[in-house]
């Protein structure tokens, strides 16, 4: 079941208003480990320490600063900062529509389901219109005094709101400084063939988190005091650049 209603608002573009309720779409449960002190197993917690004096600094001695240049900060009061928070609104303002595939997943932050609120008017029409145009709406709204930026997309019969990362939060791939290697047409061709041979539809149900169970077994064993065989992780030998074509060929033979 979708999570409880988090927020209510309405999608607005042109003269359309579509009232919706926001629900969480993902629920993650993970095993919780704690960090302990080796010699007495006391649970540790995080503490802010002064990088200069190396001493713990209590909350009342902490200030917030914006680093203007190296070691130079502009101090800000928490109250003043609070005042910069936007007021809550109800409108999910759609500014434009883009082809869905143009939104690189690197921008996707978190997804919410939108439930039609009171009326189906407009909701079903919007689902259908987005599907038929292959587009997503780029929108902004204010939720919990946070300015959000997101995309309005469809997931089956349901409208979804994806919060997006702002451009200044995504490290551009260009900044990685990667250099292009020269590739022969033959290498590209065989690699393409190989990828096509290894292609399958996306079926996420095929992949279960088996690890959690194995980890639980390990913990149970250790709790019972059983000996654990520690296996070394396998590290593959990298394919040498001059053996690349050979490896691709051999791969293709294997799968074809």
């Amino acid at each position: 079941m979708a999570g409880r209603t988090l927020w209510k608002g309405y999608i607005q573009f042109s003269d359309f208003n579509v009232p919706v309720k926001l629900h969480t779409a993902v629920h993650q449960e993970r095993m919780q480990f704690h960090l302990l002190h080796k010699h007495d197993r006391v649970k540790l917690h995080q503490q802010m320490i002064c990088a200069h004096e190396k001493i713990p600094v209590p909350l009342e001695e902490q200030s917030k600063g914006f680093e203007l240049e190296d070691r130079k900060y502009i101090l800000v009061d928490p109250e003043e900062l609070e005042q910069t928070k936007p007021d809550n609104g109800r409108m999910i303002k759609v500014h434009e529509f883009v082809r869905t595939e143009q939104i690189d997943p690197v921008f996707l932050e978190r997804m919410y389901y939108l439930e039609p609120d009171k009326t189906l008017n407009g909701y079903n029409a919007l689902v259908s219109a987005l599907k038929e145009t292959g587009t997503a709406g780029v929108c902004t709204w204010t939720m919990r005094r946070r300015s959000c930026f997101g995309s309005l997309q469809i997931n089956g019969k349901v409208l979804c709101l994806n919060t997006l990362r702002y451009a200044d939060e995504v490290i551009p791939a260009k900044s990685l400084g990667l250099e292009k290697a020269s590739l022969s047409e033959k290498e590209l061709k065989i690699a393409r063939e190989l990828i096509n041979q290894l292609s399958a539809p996306f079926q996420p149900e095929k992949f279960q988190n088996e690890h959690q169970k194995k980890l639980q077994d390990l913990i149970d064993k250790k709790a019972r005091g059983e000996k654990i065989a520690v296996l070394r992780p396998r590290r593959l030998k990298p394919t040498a650049p001059d053996k690349l074509l050979q490896a691709l060929n051999a791969s293709l033979e294997k799968v074809a």
Binding site: L35, L44, H45, Q46, Q47, M48, I49, C50, A51, H52, E53, P56, V57, E60, E61, Q62, S63, K64, G65, Y73, L75
Partner: peptide
């Protein structure tokens, strides 16, 4: 920052 001398703070396990 540390209010006393504006040294930056770092997160450490305690």
């Amino acid at each position: 920052l540390h209010s006393k001398d504006y040294s930056p703070l770092a997160r450490r396990m305690y």
